[in-house]
Structure formats: structure tokens, C-alpha cells
């Protein structure tokens, strides 16, 4: 009970600090502008003639690739640069509570940005008769992808005081997670080594494979497990890195 309250205290503070700086508003505006323009221009929302969110949601992993590291790079880097890291870790809270609290704040923030895109749902509903289950599933997939990228950014942010380094490293890792299951890349692997199991193993690591399943409206435990395990792994990694940063 006490531990939940500590985590929530940290989450509240961190979430408030997002909105105390212009970063939050810049992030939200850019996210809405890009996701909107991608949907209607690149995604060919109208010519498709489908009442689905596919042309909208399909771009999310690519948007998150840059936007989530930008939103999360300060998580620990800033804390270490300003010295409040020392304050936090001499309070009677456990490292798990601290890591989880800060991560949840970032995730909630991304969730708020995602919720602000719901007018597109209204548009689809107005124009046709969409499948609500598929749309809910698509949003869930988008939210889980954001959380996965954020957990990775949390880890890279713990590695350094420098936010730029944290940003670049997390973009690279997230890019690998996207590309591993992208058809041009999987075809390249197939040409180089014509074994299906290799391609399957590679695309099993990819966010895209699991994101696509959810976009199609399939809720598979394996997909949920994938997102959960990458998040847990990255947050555990954050803990290990923070511990080693404190002792050296």
C-alpha cells in the first residue's frame, strides 16, 4: 500500500513537470499534426474508401520512433544532471518505486497525447460503420508500442547525463525493433539466408509484427506478452544501470 502511494507520488510530480515545461505542448502539437497529415496524405485516408483506422494507426510506430525518445530522454538524465537523483535515492523509497513512478508518468503523458487523437474515431464513425473492437485494439497496440519505446528510452536515459546521447541511442534501438519485422528487411534476410526460421525469429523481436496483429483486431496473449516482457526487461535494465551509476 505504502509502495503504491510512493509510486503514485512520483508519478504525479513527474507528470506535472511535463506540463510545467513547453516540451509537453510542443510534443502534443507535433504528434497531432504529424499523425493527422500522415493519415490524410501518406495514408490516403479518403481514396481507400474504408471505414477503419488503419491509415491512421499504421504510422504510429514511426512517429513514436522519434517522439517517444524525445519525451523520455529527460527521465533520468535530467535527474542526474541536476543532482535531484541523490535526493530521490536517499528518500525512504525503493528503486523499483522510483523507476516505475517515473515510467508511468511518461506513459500516462503519451496516453494523454494519444487520447487527443480521438476526433479521428469520430470522423471514421461519421463516414462509415467501423468495427469498434478493431479500433479499440488498434489504440491498445499503439499505446503498448509507446510504452515499449518509453521503457527503452528510460534505460538509455539512465546511462548518461547527456539527453542528446540518450535520445540517439534510444532511437537506434527502437529503429532496430521496428525494422526487424519490416517486409523489405525480412526479404533481405530471406535473400541472404533462405531459412524461414531465421526470418521468423527476427520478426518475432519486432514491434511491427505484434503491433500489426493488434491493428487487425487480434488480441493474442503472445503479443501482449511481447510488449510486457520488453517493458519489464528495459525497466529492469534501468534499475541495474542506475545501481551501477550510484556505486561508481
Amino acid at each position: 500500500m505504502r509502495s503504491c502511494r510512493n509510486t503514485w507520488t512520483l508519478t504525479k510530480r513527474e507528470l506535472a513537470s511535463y506540463f510545467a515545461s513547453p516540451v509537453a505542448y510542443v510534443f502534443i502539437i507535433i504528434f497531432l499534426l504529424l499523425s493527422g497529415s500522415f493519415t490524410f496524405m501518406l495514408g490516403q485516408f479518403f481514396p481507400r474508401g474504408e471505414s477503419s483506422l488503419a491509415p491512421f494507426l499504421m504510422w504510429h510506430p514511426w512517429l513514436y520512433l522519434f517522439l517517444v525518445p524525445a519525451a523520455g530522454m529527460r527521465l533520468w538524465a535530467e535527474e542526474r544532471r541536476s543532482g535531484t537523483f541523490e535526493l530521490l535515492f536517499t528518500m525512504p523509497i525503493s528503486p523499483t518505486q522510483a523507476i516505475l513512478g517515473k515510467f508511468l508518468a511518461g506513459w500516462l503523458f503519451l496516453g494523454i497525447a494519444l487520447l487527443l487523437t480521438t476526433p479521428i474515431v469520430g470522423t471514421v464513425e461519421y463516414l462509415g460503420a467501423p468495427d469498434w473492437g478493431v479500433m479499440r485494439c488498434g489504440y491498445l497496440g499503439s499505446f503498448l508500442t509507446a510504452g515499449t519505446f518509453l521503457a527503452i528510452t528510460s534505460m538509455t536515459s539512465a546511462m548518461t547525463r547527456n539527453q542528446v546521447i540518450s535520445f540517439i541511442v534510444s532511437v537506434v534501438i527502437c529503429l532496430l525493433l521496428i525494422l526487424a519485422g519490416w517486409p523489405p528487411i525480412t526479404n533481405l534476410i530471406l535473400e541472404w539466408a533462405p531459412w524461414n526460421w531465421l526470418v521468423e525469429a527476427a520478426s518475432g523481436f519486432s514491434v511491427m509484427t505484434h503491433f500489426d496483429n493488434l491493428q487487425r483486431g487480434l488480441i493474442d496473449v503472445r503479443d501482449l506478452l511481447y510488449f510486457a516482457s520488453v517493458m519489464v526487461f528495459a525497466l529492469f535494465g534501468t534499475g541495474v544501470i542506475l545501481k551501477s551509476r550510484r556505486s561508481a
Partner: peptide
Amino acid sequence: PAYPEMTVEGFLKFAAEL
């Protein structure tokens, strides 16, 4: 060290909660 974007009172309330 203290969180730069908080008010003095807000910072103390946060610390008290922890």
C-alpha cells in the same frame, strides 16, 4: 539540489509525501 520547475511549497509537499 531541488526540482527546478516546482514551487518551493510544491517541492516540500512532494518531499513530505515521500
